[in-house]
């Protein structure tokens, strides 16, 4: 678990995290797509935590979260807080969740995603925005639906890179 990552792992991890960050920035302004836009960064981070718990630390979560806050023009620390909480919960449960069948894994992750959405709802209310709790449900649901596919995609890429290196 504590062995350092291979070079291809590092490359794939950074590429996927940066892609997720870009996708977060490309959040559509309105319409159905805006409601259903998944939490890309959290999902990609979740994959890497399950793969190697050490490669996404809370520190990295804070770093990416702050970048997201700056890029989206929201109050500093908002996304960072949500990511840190999510990363902590995943790190605590990863040893069990990792070996669950996919549907159970998705359910466990949904719990964490829902908690994040609830936190975000509270934060928006505190800041004075007319946040709707239903919106959080939509986002969490679409993120959970995406999870198995994202997991498969990243896992395939990971295995393919490993094989091509050997």
């Amino acid at each position: 678990m504590n062995t350092p990552l291979k070079r291809h792992h590092q490359g794939l991890m950074w590429a996927s995290l940066l892609t997720a960050l870009m996708l977060e920035f490309w959040h559509p302004l309105d319409g159905l797509a805006a409601r259903l836009w998944p939490q890309w960064l959290m999902l990609v981070m979740a994959y890497w935590i399950m793969e190697r718990s050490r490669c996404v630390s809370m520190f990295r979560g804070v770093l990416f979260g702050l970048l997201l806050d700056l890029g989206r023009g929201v109050v500093l620390g908002q996304h960072a807080l949500l990511l840190v909480v999510g990363i902590y919960l995943l790190q605590q449960t990863r040893l069990r969740v990792r070996f669950y069948p996919m549907w159970q894994q998705t359910a466990a992750l949904s719990g964490i995603l829902l908690l994040q959405q609830a936190l975000q709802w509270g934060l928006y209310r505190w800041l004075g925005y007319p946040a709707q709790w239903q919106d959080g449900l939509w986002t969490a649901a679409s993120s959970a639906m995406l999870w198995p596919w994202l997991f498969l995609l990243l896992d395939r890429l990971n295995m393919w890179l490993r094989r091509s290196e050997n």
Partner: peptide
């Protein structure tokens, strides 16, 4: 981890 989480959460709330 729990201590680290607490410290980060406090720091981030202060920042916000």
């Amino acid at each position: 981890g729990s201590l680290r989480l607490t410290v980060w959460v406090l720091l981030l709330v202060a920042l916000m």
